[in-house]
């Protein structure tokens, strides 16, 4: 495993809810990342994030790690939950809130 894959693993396993996005929740640099961050904020739990625009290695590496072609990517409880479409669909159905709350509680 490369250093990049190892550091991604540590981030994903060290944070119950972590969003890989372009920009930050305060200053998103892409509409898809913005919607994902807003949905997550709407769930009322704290979440970590990584701005992939600050690290080219992670920007590519997270696509390999998740075997997922796009960013944003949301990891909950160490597992890839999905990208923007899935985040939004689960937010609207209420499933996102349940998933992130459960992961946050089990990490406490």
């Amino acid at each position: 495993m490369t250093d990049i894959q190892q550091s991604i693993r540590e981030q994903v396993e060290g944070n119950p809810v972590i969003l890989y996005m372009k920009g930050s929740p305060q200053f998103p640099q892409c509409g898809f990342s913005m919607r994902a961050a807003q949905a997550l904020a709407g769930c009322g739990v704290e979440f970590a994030y990584v701005n992939v625009l600050e690290d080219e290695g992670i920007r590519q590496g997270i696509k390999d790690y998740g075997n997922w072609p796009t960013i944003p990517q949301l990891y909950v409880g160490g597992e890839l939950l999905g990208g923007c479409d899935i985040i939004m669909e689960m937010y609207e159905s209420g499933e996102l809130k349940k998933a992130v709350q459960a992961a946050t509680e089990s990490a406490e």
Partner: peptide
């Protein structure tokens, strides 16, 4: 959903 989306991505992989 993640498995459904993966099925779709797999079918389009070469073009992605």
């Amino acid at each position: 959903l993640i498995k459904r989306h993966r099925m779709v991505y797999d079918l389009l992989q070469a073009h992605i």
